[in-house]
Nucleic acid binder design. Sequence first.
DNA 1: CGCCAGGTTAGAG
DNA 2: CTCTAACATGGC
Length: 294
Amino acid sequence: MANSFFISVPETFDFKHCLSYLARSPREVLHVCNGNEVTKLVRGKDRNILFRVTNTKRRLQVSVLNTSLTKDIKAAVESYVREWFDLDTDLEPFYALASRDRHLKVLVKEYYGYRIVGQPDLFESLVWAVIGQQINLAFAYTLKQRLVEKFGEQITIDGTTYYLFPEPRALADVNPDDLLTLQFSRQKARYIVGLAKSFASGEISREKLEAMPPDERMGALLAIKGIGTWTANYVMMRTFRHRTALPLGDAGLNAALRRALKLDRKPTAEEVLRVFRRYRGWEAYATLYFWKSL
DNA sequence: CGCCAGGTTAGAG
DNA sequence: CTCTAACATGGC
C-alpha cells in the first residue's frame, strides 16, 4: 500500500499484549481496536492525522488513512508510534532481573514483550490520572468518554468516529459546575479546569517539564492542585517514561501484591517497598507486569 | 446493603 | 509529623 510503511521492532516486543491493554475498555474513545489492529487520530503540525497500526512478522505496519504519506507525516507518525509502543527501551536487563524473581518470573514469561504503552500528551495524561483517582476503572472510562465527546474534536471516516482529547483551551473556560452534569465530583471538576488553565496559559507544558531534571520535574507535578504522589508517578511512568516511577498506594498494585504475597489484606507501603527493592531501576516495569497479572 | 475502586486535599491533633 | 472526613458513583 502506497500510504503505509514499516517499523521493525525489538525481539522483546509483542504487539498483542500492548493491543490487549489498549482494548481493555469498550468505552475507550481515543483509539479504535479491531482484531489485530488499532486506529488512532493524532494532532499533526498542519492537520489531524488518522493512522492504523497492525502487526506483521517482526515489524509493525503503519498506514496513514486520511492524507498522503509525505516525508514529514511519515516522520511524525513513526516517532509517535515508537513512543506510544515503547519501542526504544531495551528490556533485556529487566528480563534478566525478573527471570530470577519468584513473583515476576511467571509474569514476564506469560506476557513476554509487553511494554509500557505511553501517553505522550501530558495534559491528557494528567487529566486521565485525575479522573481515575479513587473510582473504579469502568467508571473512569465512562467519565473520560463523556469529557471527550463533549469537548474533543472528532472526524468521521467510513462510518467510524475518531476523537482527539480536548485541548486545554477547550476546557480552560469551562465552569467546573458544568462537569458535575457529566458526573464528575466537584473536586475533580476543579482540578481538571485548573489543569486546563495552567496548560492554556503556558504555565505548564510538556516541554517545560521535559527540560527539568527528574527530581525537579516531580516537584513541579506535585505542586499542581490535584496531583499527589500516585498521580505524579503514574504520569512519570506513562508520559516521561521514568523507569523508576512507582505509583505507591495504587489499588491495583496492592491487589496484585496481596495475591503474590498471599496476604489476607492489602500490603502496607513498607511491604510493597520491600518487594520493590529487588526491582531497583525497573520499578515502572515491575508495576506494569503486576498490573497485567490482575 | 456495605465496601472498595488505578487518591488528594485541607484541617485537626 | 500523622490521621481523617469529604468527595460521587459504579460494581460486586
